[in-house]
Each structure stands twice: as structure tokens, then as C-alpha cells.
Nucleic acid binder design. Structure first.
Lengths: 189, 189
DNA sequence: GTCTATAGCGCGATAGAC
DNA sequence: GTCTATCGCGCTATAGAC
């Protein structure tokens, strides 16, 4: 059930504003003004402000879930899986820089879909944790607390949306390579 | 001008709620309710809601600035400076887990002090960038895009406040060591 | 599909009693 | 130092004209 036409425009505009100020600080009047219409007109296309947030966050979260499934089902080494995940995050983040902000910062304002979101998030983390632990068992990854590795990787991957749009003319291929190298092999010579 | 007594309690309560829902979604009535008083009573101790946010963010930002100055003035290798910065972030974050949330997520709602905050933040990043670039020149750090290193480190360090309180009985010493190892030397065996 | 008008509510903040 | 009462405003959302 992909929304279309005017509704897409509203969602896109909302994402942009949610990124700047956060869901709670953005009003329907702000969204309308950015589209040069009146706030009441928005309701001809959408049901509520909450519906906007919900659509933005859930569709992105499901995209990550789909990507994670593909990685898990690919029969490669743990390190190779981590490399695929870095690429997945760079890909999704660079194509959804605004929506990623809501996913990261406004999920707590979800209402009906909050539990579903939390489940997707928990499953994603659990899958990543398993990849890391398997890598340690396989002797592919150093024997350090897997929680520290999980935290460090996820923090960086979740912040990509802030960083990517700041760098003009970013070569995504090159960037993915550099980031993978730094995350996996560190920076010490 | 350290605030004292009841004012401290208000700031502490506000930090806690700001972390849960963000500045804009927290009302003065929420803060008052958490303290078992009425919203109007808060104004006997503070000037405005904005004053709360401003105090929380600016005092923390200045703490980071002070820490960064000490690191820069310490005459050691670039790698040693990075290690000190990891320890600085772990130290400040573990002692201010709530306030760190506002620093990271609600700075855009600052009014009078927004420009000052942005300056502190810019200076901090600039100082870290210089440490990294010097490390590359010195042959201490691998020759990769310094922006990627800057981004990756800062993302992880800025997320510590989310992660630290989730781990009960965290051994801060051990954690700092593990995190430093992962950030500097990577995870590949 | 957009408008004007407005309902119904909650917000930050103030006044003044105790 | 906390209270009750309230001001003035902005919010989401709806009703109904065009």
C-alpha cells in the first residue's frame, strides 16, 4: 500500500521538517506552509500527524529488516556479512537522509505502531549480535566483549544520515570502502 | 554561577524527562508532576523552560571544551590523545547520561545560546580533526580519509549515553579499554 | 483539492492568596 | 515556596462552502 501523488509530497515535506526540529516541534501549519497550502488541506490526503510519523519510520525499519534477512541468508563469513551490513546502511541512509532522522530520534512518539517498531529494532540488534558472536567463535573477530563491538558499529551506522548529506559530491563507493576499513581494521598503523 | 537546592532538583528532573521524550514533548506540567508540585511553583526557582535546556546543554558542552583543551595541551602522541578523548567521553557520559541526550538531540531548540553552542561544537570537532590529521602525517594513523575517522569516532562517542546505562554493573575501566581497542585497532583478527 | 472558520484542548507563564 | 486561577496563544483536527 504505497501512498501516491500528493500524499507522497506531504510525507517528504514532513520528513524534511522532522529532521530539522523533531516530530513534536513541527506543526501541521509548518508542513502546510512549506507546501504553500493551508493546514486543513493536508487532511484531505492524510488521517493525522501520527500517520505521517508512522509511515516514515515503519517503512524504513522494514527496509532494514529485509536487508538484514538477505545478509543472514547469504552463506558467507561473518566478516563478509558485516561488510554487507555496512553497505546496506550506507545505501539506505544515503537514499533516505531525512527519514533516517525520525527513525533514530522520533520513534518514541509512535503510538499504535510503537510495539511493532521496538520488535523490529530488537530483532535487528539480535541478528547483528549473533553475527558478531559467530565471528568471535570462528576466530574471524578478536575476542573482545561482543556488546562493545555491537554498540560501536551500530552507533556509527545509525549516524550516517547526519554525515552523508554534509559531504558534497560524496563518492559512495569510495566512502563505503573507507568506512568498512575503519570499522573492521581500525586506524592504528 | 552554580544553581543550588531546589533549582538543581528541577534541572535533574527535566534532564530525565528530556531524555525520554525530547525537549518539545515535555511540558512544565510533566516536570512539576514528577516532583509532586504544581507547574506554577517551578517559576519560583527558574525563569523559563528554555533556561532549563540552556543550562543542561551549555554546562555539559563547556565540560567537553575544558577536557579537549587539557588533551591538546598534553604533549603526547596523536594516538595517546585519542585514547584520552575516549576516556573523557566515557567519563562525562557515564556521569551525565540524561543531560547527554539533550546535548545530542535538543540543541536546535536553544534560543539565546544557540550560536555559542554551535561555536563550541565546531571548535571541538576542529580540534579532533587536527589530532587525526597530525596522526596521519606522523605515520601513527593509517592514510585514510580523516573525515571518515572523525565521523566514525564521534558517532560512537556521542552515543555512549544511550548505551552505558543499559549495561548494569558496567566496569568503566574495562569498558574504556575495550572501546579504545575496538576504535583504534578494529575487530578483525 | 483547497479554502475559511472554529471547536476543543493544552501550552508557557503570571498574579496574588496563604 | 507552593497553591489556585487564569490569560493569551497555538495546537490537531473537523465542518462545510466553493
Amino acid at each position: 500500500m504505497k501512498p501516491s501523488g500528493r500524499k507522497i509530497e506531504i510525507i517528504t515535506t514532513a520528513s524534511l521538517l522532522f529532521k530539522e526540529k523533531g516530530y513534536s516541534a513541527v506543526t501541521m501549519r509548518d508542513i502546510a506552509k512549506a507546501m504553500d497550502i493551508k493546514a486543513a488541506s493536508l487532511y484531505n490526503h492524510i488521517k493525522s500527524k501520527q500517520e505521517l510519523l508512522s509511515h516514515i519510520i515503519i517503512s524504513l525499519a522494514e527496509e532494514f529488516t529485509t536487508g538484514m534477512k538477505a545478509v543472514i541468508n547469504s552463506e558467507t563469513s561473518s566478516i563478509e556479512k558485516l561488510k554487507k551490513l555496512v553497505a546496506l546502511h550506507v545505501f539506505i541512509s544515503s537514499n533516505n537522509t531525512q527519514a533516517m532522522a525520525s527513525l533514530n530520534n522520533d520513534w518514541m512518539h509512535l503510538e499504535a505502531q510503537l510495539d511493532y517498531y521496538l520488535q523490529l529494532r530488537k530483532d535487528y540488534e539480535e541478528n547483528l549480535r549473533k553475527i558478531i558472536k559467530d565471528g568471535i567463535k570462528n576466530n574471524e573477530i578478536i575476542d573482545v566483549n561482543p556488546e562493545v563491538v555491537l554498540f560501536s558499529m551500530l552507533s556509527t551506522l545509525r549516524s550516517l544520515y547526519v554525515w552523508i548529506p554534509k559531504k558534497e559530491d560524496l563518492d559512495i563507493e569510495q566512502f563505503t570502502q573507507d568506512l568498512t576499513a575503519v570499522l573492521l581494521s581500525g586506524i592504528v598503523k
